[in-house]
Nucleic acid binder design. Structure first.
Lengths: 185, 185
DNA sequence: ACCACCATGTAAACGGTTACATGATTAC
DNA sequence: GTAATCATGTAACCGTTTACATGGTGGT
């Protein structure tokens, strides 16, 4: 399962341009799937080549022509197969947690700063998900995915907020007791 | 930050072979960083080429020679720079949540099955993290990272366990009311 | 019998990120 | 003036995954 599958997926909700698909990704999937233009446009071109989507161009002034994509019946079939056949993976790749794991090798301010950055990133996301869960027109699965984000990011946020002070204090303490071990940073 | 950085990181805790490094990754990072032999061995070779680690070979019977790697002072410096200079990213890529998002396009049993698979994957991980948090010899940052895993995976587990039945019921209900819209799956 | 563990590596394929190229409009 | 929004695309680069290759030991 890759960006192509996601593109087919959002096109089941209606025709869209590549640009709109990206906004769609940002609105709905940002907490579990990220894709930039550099992967969306080539994905759409490939889907088109395979006959899983069609596109019609709309002329515009002062901009490149808009290309509105639609999913084909064959595309719907392939999407169904992909969704049914792919094992449900769930991967986290966190350089933030790597940083935390090796916190004893870093200046405590750096550790505190990294935590603050994560809080700044997660807090608005949780708020947005909370907001979007008030919408009554969501499909059950969409609500489930958004609810997951709220629950899990909420827990992450609460955990780092609660643990930050103690961690930074412990690190500073360890430094004060054994400053030689940190030489050369 | 990539597998090379992580290798340097675990080598600060003592000399290790590539094989041991992988076990180390599995024990300590499995909930936020995954790496296979296919990325660890080339990473070690590259670090060696750059003089950030050294290795000595130990002959063995019936197996390839063991290569024990040690981090060099230069390697420690580069590790520090990398850790200090990298922005703390945190990425989730969840095909499981994609599946949930498009649940209405799938047979409800498939959705239930996917949830069960995630529970089967997360439950032992949470137990393991819980267990490892009882170890008093962990560095504060390591405890923080493990605690994060327990809190967040625990929340994920609780969320999917609590929401599974309702989601599956809603999906089955929607199918019963409008079976035509799901034709062709 | 078969699988897991130990132990190292290579090579191709795959997919995603980043940077580049273009450019008008609108809001702060 | 500066940045964001709309709108598409290419190409080089990077890193990971997967499959292959080899093979003895110990447990169920």
């Amino acid at each position: 399962m890759d960006v192509k599958t996601l593109c087919l997926g959002v096109l089941t909700e209606g025709d869209k341009t590549g640009y709109e698909i990206k906004r769609c990704f940002e609105d709905a999937f940002s907490h579990f799937f990220v894709a930039g233009f550099g992967s969306i446009y080539p994905a759409l071109a490939e889907l088109s080549r395979r006959g899983l989507v069609t596109s019609r161009s709309v002329e515009q002034e002062g901009r490149p022509d808009k290309k509105i994509y639609s999913i084909t019946p064959e595309g719907e079939r392939v999407l169904g197969d992909e969704l049914t056949g792919t094992p449900p993976r769930h991967k986290v790749r966190s350089e933030f947690l790597v940083l935390m794991y090796f916190a004893h090798l870093l200046p405590p301010e750096r550790v505190a700063g990294a935590i603050d950055q994560m809080i700044a990133q997660w807090a608005p996301l949780v708020a947005e998900l909370e907001d979007c869960l008030t919408d009554p027109d969501m499909a059950p699965g969409q609500r489930f995915a958004a609810g997951y984000g709220r629950a899990v990011l909420g827990a992450a946020l609460a955990y780092v907020r609660a643990g930050k002070a103690a961690l930074v204090a412990e690190l500073a303490d360890a430094r004060a007791r054994d400053p030689v071990a940190m030489a050369g940073e």
